[in-house]
């Protein structure tokens, strides 16, 4: 047992690069499966509402704008989103995807809202939507 066992380690680190990166100028790369914000590919959406039902934060809202023309509007409230990517897992046609952005803060929460208006797609789901 001796005093100052940690000192050699401390001195060694004087000559090492910092463990952190110089953030706003240098950014770390996010991993391949990073969970950023969800977005919709409207050409694939069959309006099964699986994402709306499974979203734990109630951040997805689908409303019909014109029943006859089968037009729908989807709003993703990114201010409520908890970035769990459950919507991506629930989607039977891969219409929901996650991006890799991480600098998504804003001064106003309403700016975070994303909207799509589209005609319901006719795509064969790769698996049945999870219904009861």
């Amino acid at each position: 047992m001796k005093i100052g066992v940690f000192i050699p380690e401390l001195l060694r680190h004087l000559f090492k690069k910092p463990a952190t990166v110089d953030y706003p100028f240098q950014k770390l790369e996010v991993p391949r499966d990073f969970r950023g914000s969800p977005y919709l590919r409207p050409e694939l959406c069959i309006v099964c509402r699986a994402c709306e039902r499974d979203c734990p934060a109630e951040a997805i809202e689908i409303t019909a704008t014109n029943e006859a023309e089968k037009r729908f509007r989807m709003v993703i409230h990114n201010d409520r989103c908890i970035h769990c990517a459950q919507c991506v897992d629930s989607c039977p046609t891969d219409a929901m995807q996650m991006d890799t952005k991480f600098e998504i803060s804003d001064y106003d929460r309403h700016n975070l809202k994303m909207e799509w208006e589209y005609v319901r797609a006719v795509v064969k789901p790769k698996s049945e939507p999870k219904t009861s």
């Binding site: 499966d33 990073f34 969970r35 908890i82 990517a85 459950q86 897992d89």
Partner: peptide, 19 residues
């Protein structure tokens, strides 16, 4: 983060396995 896509809330579990 590499396994699950996030550092703190991994969200790797789902009912019946992992995601």
């Amino acid at each position: 983060e590499i396994i699950s896509g996030n550092r703190v809330h991994y969200g790797i579990n789902t009912i019946g396995g992992v995601r």
